[in-house]
């Protein structure tokens, strides 16, 4: 296995309508890194994520996951290696019960029943959702849905976790719990979000996308302390780094 777990080189993508969603995106992510991908609406975050598991194929440029170049023949391996958690858990949890949903991936890998059972229970334990195993997804709270959504990819033992807006629509307490849960994972993580405070908590490195290009890539604190860059990218300093609303002093 190479040291670089994700390597994106000169990636370009144009939608059928003619919108240039990605223009020459390149970056490398090494094993164990936790990287935030931020940018305004329409900056290209979703399009980028869709390339990471081969839902969209690189037309120009390349995406490498571990040892595999993303292409038709390697799709199976790529999708096993990349655990993709979608923004709306209702899209992610499509099976009748939590247990069956977490078992969906391992069963597609062709694992024997005993191994599937073990992986499902381990994944549910990891996210603290073992007691939800027989529940139908529509009877879960927002926070529970997120936790189970993570379990559905953990059960496939991925090398890389890709999360799209993992904290949207969560109440503050559920959000905090979820961030703490993510912190316990040793996986390499890519988190695309508008929740810059979460990035501050979880990611030592941040990639800023704007207009389909990488406008910055570096240590999170450094990027969030560059007001001009943030403004140009339609972003804003994380609330925690802004001045106190009562006394005006920096927090």
């Amino acid at each position: 296995m190479t040291h670089h777990i994700v390597e994106v080189q000169d990636l370009n993508y144009t939608y059928p309508g003619g919108v240039h969603a990605l223009q020459g995106v390149s970056f490398r992510i090494v094993h164990g890194e936790s990287v935030g991908v931020v940018g305004a609406n329409g900056a290209g975050k979703s399009t980028l994520l869709r390339h990471l598991n081969g839902y969209l194929m690189p037309v120009q440029g390349s995406v490498r996951i571990g040892d595999c170049l993303v292409a038709k023949p390697t799709l199976r391996d790529v999708r096993r290696a990349v655990g993709m958690v979608f923004q709306d858990p209702d899209d992610q949890l499509f099976m009748p019960t939590v247990y069956e949903d977490v078992a969906f991936g391992p069963l597609n890998l062709g694992l024997p029943a005993a191994e599937v059972e073990a992986r499902v229970m381990q994944a549910l334990d990891t996210v603290g959702a073992a007691h939800l195993r027989d529940r139908p997804p529509h009877r879960l709270s927002g926070g529970e849905k997120r936790a189970v959504a993570i379990a559905t990819v953990l059960s496939m033992a991925p090398d890389l976790l890709v999360l799209d807006e993992p904290t949207s629509n969560l109440d503050p307490k559920a959000r905090r719990q979820f961030i703490e849960l993510l912190r316990t994972f040793r996986h390499t993580k890519i988190i695309a979000t508008h929740d810059l405070d979460m990035i501050l908590d979880l990611c030592e490195r941040t990639i800023v996308l704007h207009g389909g290009r990488v406008t910055a890539d570096g240590p999170t604190l450094q990027i969030f302390n560059d007001p001009e860059l943030l403004m140009r990218s339609h972003l804003e300093k994380p609330l925690r780094m802004q001045a106190c609303p009562v006394c005006g002093k920096p927090t």
Binding site: R79, F94, A113
Partner: peptide, 16 residues
């Protein structure tokens, strides 16, 4: 898309 990224191949398998 969510199905595909978990190895969906047209067949939904059930174990209960």
């Amino acid at each position: 898309m969510a199905m595909l990224s978990r190895g969906f191949d047209g067949e939904i398998r059930l174990i209960r």
